[in-house]
């Protein structure tokens, strides 16, 4: 979450003058920096490192909703719900994808610790959810069998 906060502060200091002067309509907030290290990692371990998720704790408070068998790997519906208090971000890793880290969702300001998205999966693999809460990382996994890979 720090990066969200940091970019927010940077924007706040830089842009608030413009907003106050009425030059810029405060519509969309500045996006967090794309996690290049994590997203461009080709190995699962490097992706985890890119997330900074060391010492992950297995947790039953994370639920992963995804099909047991996905016939079409190009469209695998995935929903993650975290019941861990102070959940700040949810990441989804498809362990055997060419680039394992698929998405990170930073939640704030009343958004529930929930995200739903459709992913591509190259082959049968664990889907792993990694939740950051109070500076700690929690994780859970679910295997999804893929009949036809969706990376081609």
């Amino acid at each position: 979450m720090n990066h969200l906060r940091r970019s927010f502060l940077a924007v706040a200091s830089g842009a608030s003058a413009l907003v106050a002067a009425g030059f810029v309509k405060p519509r969309a907030a500045e996006a967090a920096t794309w996690n290049k290290q994590g997203f461009e990692a080709k190995a699962y371990n490097d992706a985890i490192k890119g997330l900074g998720a060391t010492n992950m704790i297995e947790s039953k408070d994370i639920s992963i909703t995804a099909p047991d068998i996905a016939e079409n790997g190009a469209v695998v519906p995935v929903a993650i719900t975290s019941k861990i208090p102070n959940t700040r971000s949810i990441s989804i890793v498809a362990e055997k994808n060419p680039f394992p880290l698929a998405a990170t969702f930073d939640v704030a300001n009343g958004a529930e610790p929930y995200a739903s998205v459709r992913l591509k999966m190259g082959q049968t693999s664990n889907l792993r959810a990694i939740v950051k809460a109070d500076g700690k990382y929690y994780t859970a996994a679910k295997e999804v069998k893929v009949t036809v890979g969706g990376c081609g």
């Binding site: 680039f99 990170t104 704030a108 300001n109 958004a111 995200a115 739903s116 998205v117 459709r118």
Partner: peptide, 20 residues
């Protein structure tokens, strides 16, 4: 107020769906 800030890779499906 920002409620969700998502970062994605190319693993998200074509014509992406997002639920929050």
């Amino acid at each position: 107020r920002t409620v969700l800030d998502a970062q994605w890779s190319q693993a998200v499906s074509r014509d992406p769906f997002l639920g929050l």
